[in-house]
């Protein structure tokens, strides 16, 4: 197991370097001068040139690339061009908020999505199935900035159960949990809708297999057939979807963060892009890429737990 994990992590190094290189190139291809963004529209060309020198942007691209890669490989992503703060410190300050929201939404999505998906599969074309399909379609088509505003109007403004400003004090766990509820529901509903549909179709496929018929013929109780034989075999696509979705949530929850006023990685990425904060973008991409690698690794390990044949391979 340890060997497998190490091999996977090592295999991720070329991916990380490729991502780093791509990010380095892309942020420099996009028009927009960071020095101009930082200094504003009254800055003279002299001031802009001075800042470019200070930021190291006057060096050749090769020199910039070399120093970026060598620093990144030892875990030093430098400082933000805009704020002058360490990138690790900036990311470290918001990462717990992102992880909170991602995990909570994932749990919410699984807890709602899996049972509803199974239920819909067991009542194929029945009222429950149609309702689940319509609701999941609604969940998928409702953007977070719409559902989020509805949630705020109802639960913050009307009933006053939750605050509108969702940025919590990390050291106060009660506050953290309280302010996590509405964003989790907004983001988790989309995930639940997605998982419902995948679970339903995976279960329908699984329940039609020969081993299910065999199990039923042998007199295995229906509940056990569904939850052990059916669900276990349907779990691979569900885990794949959850793994993929968690990866997306890590960086793409920016709309939820904006609507609920929460700090997070997505918001930092958008801010860095608007301000052409090259160093911040590069650092964020490495961290994001690393998180994706870890999530994929966990997904692969779960495959082994669900299906022993994968472990054997």
């Amino acid at each position: 197991m340890t060997g497998f994990v190490l091999r996977r992590l090592l295999a991720a190094v070329p991916t990380l370097i490729a991502v780093l290189t791509l990010v380095f190139i892309i942020v420099r291809i996009v028009p927009g001068d960071p020095a101009l963004v930082i200094l504003g529209d009254q800055a003279t060309p002299e001031a802009i040139a001075a800042l470019r020198t200070r930021l190291g942007l006057d060096r050749s691209l090769w020199a910039q690339y070399f120093s970026f890669i060598t620093s990144a490989l030892v875990g030093d992503f430098g400082v933000s061009m805009v704020t002058g703060r360490s990138i690790m410190a900036e990311v470290g300050a918001v990462l717990p908020h992102t992880i909170d929201l991602t995990l909570a939404s994932m749990i919410f999505g699984i807890v709602i999505g899996v049972p509803v998906g199974i239920w819909a599969a067991l009542h194929r074309n029945g009222v429950v199935d149609v309702a689940a399909r319509v609701l999941s379609l609604l969940g998928l088509s409702f953007p977070v900035f719409v559902s989020g505003i509805f949630l705020l109007l109802a639960f913050s403004l009307h009933w006053r159960w939750f605050p509108v400003i969702g940025s919590a004090d990390l050291s106060d766990y009660g506050d953290r949990l309280h302010k996590l509820v509405l964003p989790t529901v907004a983001l988790g509903l989309v995930m639940a809708a997605y998982i419902t549909r995948v679970t339903r179709s995976a279960m329908l496929q699984s329940l039609g297999e020969d081993y299910i018929r065999t199990a039923r013929a042998k007199g295995v109780p229906w509940r056990r057939v569904v939850w052990v034989h059916g669900l276990r075999n349907a779990s691979i696509p569900i885990v794949t979807v959850v793994g993929l979705y968690v990866g997306i949530l890590l960086g793409n929850s920016v709309l939820t963060e904006i609507v609920f006023n929460r700090p997070g990685l997505g918001k930092i990425i958008v801010g860095a892009l608007n301000q052409r904060d090259y160093t911040m973008l590069q650092g964020l991409m490495v961290i994001y890429c690393f998180l994706i690698v870890v999530v994929n690794l966990i997904t692969d390990l779960l495959y082994g737990v669900i299906d022993p044949r994968v472990k054997a391979e």
Binding site: F145, I149, L152, L153, S156, L157, R160, P163, V164, I165, S167, I258, V259, F260, N261, K267
Partner: peptide, 19 residues
């Protein structure tokens, strides 16, 4: 001094007396 980029959310927070 709170950074709230969404106009709608900021307005709701003001109406809710959080600002």
């Amino acid at each position: 001094y709170r950074f709230i980029p969404s106009d709608a959310s900021r307005d709701l927070a003001f109406q809710n007396r959080e600002l």
